[in-house]
């Protein structure tokens, strides 16, 4: 028997994967979010979430922490990616690699190292919010640099030449050519940094001494005691992330293609 597979048959394993590991879990979250302990339909968790100032404050804090982290990452990563992409250096991939190597080291180890570093400087326990954001920026920087680097690398050199030819100065070239063409990279970088920095409570626990509570920690704690409320918080976070992805244009096809080039 000769084995020949059409595209459709080859797609089956992926469809099964998506069904079991993406769609069904989401439905389960949805189900738990809108039921009570007796498994009856209930909007109580929804009402409780939006009538509890602590939960709203926590989600707002998480949003702000995530926004700052993303902004700082972008500010640091863009020049790095730009310089690397445009430099004529021969071994520039080595430098890029150096920015990425921390990702090869175990995450918990890295966070612990940062913890010791902060303690040595004397910041640990003194500036919990700063430490949390610092840790997140350190941790997520590669996720911002890589997509930016790939998009910036793809910009045709002749476009810069054309800009200079038509009398554009460096600033105009940047605002009219570089920035608009690197938008897809910025968008995928933002998506890859923003979401995890709302939920990565290992950083806030270790570096913020558990004195900083972000929404991911809330979800974790609720899943120890009340799955329904935990699901509701997870669902609300999902909506926030969905909105932010949509706003940054993360759903456009060309963007996802570029983001996937890493």
């Amino acid at each position: 028997m000769r084995l020949r597979f059409s595209r459709k048959t080859l797609g089956i394993p992926y469809a099964v994967f998506l069904l079991f590991f993406v769609i069904i879990p989401m439905l389960v979250i949805l189900f738990y979010a809108f039921t009570d302990n007796e498994m009856h339909l209930s909007f109580e968790n929804f009402i409780r979430f939006f009538s509890d100032p602590t939960k709203l404050s926590t989600i707002v804090y998480s949003l702000v922490i995530a926004l700052i982290t993303t902004a700082v990452c972008l500010l640091i990563a863009y020049p790095v990616a730009y310089i690397l992409a445009r430099s004529k250096m021969k071994k520039k991939f080595v430098i890029l690699l150096l920015f990425v190597t921390p990702m090869w080291i175990n995450f918990v180890l890295r966070v612990n190292a940062i913890r010791e570093l902060l303690s040595w400087i004397g910041l640990l326990g003194e500036a919990n919010y700063f430490n949390t954001i610092f840790g997140m920026v350190y941790d997520f920087l590669p996720f911002m640099i890589l997509p930016l680097y790939t998009t910036l690398l793809k910009i045709d050199e002749s476009l810069y030449e054309a800009s200079a030819d038509l009398g554009g100065n460096a600033f105009t070239t940047f605002t009219r050519i570089t920035l608009p063409l690197s938008m897809p990279g910025i968008a995928s970088g933002i998506t890859m940094v923003f979401l995890p920095s709302m939920t990565n409570y290992v950083v806030s626990d270790m570096l913020g001494n558990s004195m900083v509570t972000i929404i991911g920690k809330f979800i974790y704690e609720y899943f120890g005691t009340n799955w329904h409320m935990g699901s509701m918080v997870a669902l609300i976070l999902l909506i926030v992330v969905f909105l932010s992805t949509w706003l940054t244009g993360g759903f456009k096809e060309e963007n996802t293609v570029r983001g996937a080039n890493i």
């Binding site: 100032p53 602590t54 404050s57 707002v60 804090y61 704690e221 005691t225």
Partner: peptide, 20 residues
């Protein structure tokens, strides 16, 4: 548990939530 989440969670004045 709710008490714990109030202690551990962040606290903002209502106006601050609205402004943000």
């Amino acid at each position: 548990n709710e008490l714990w989440s109030r202690i551990k969670g962040e606290t903002l004045e209502t106006w601050a939530i609205v402004v943000i």
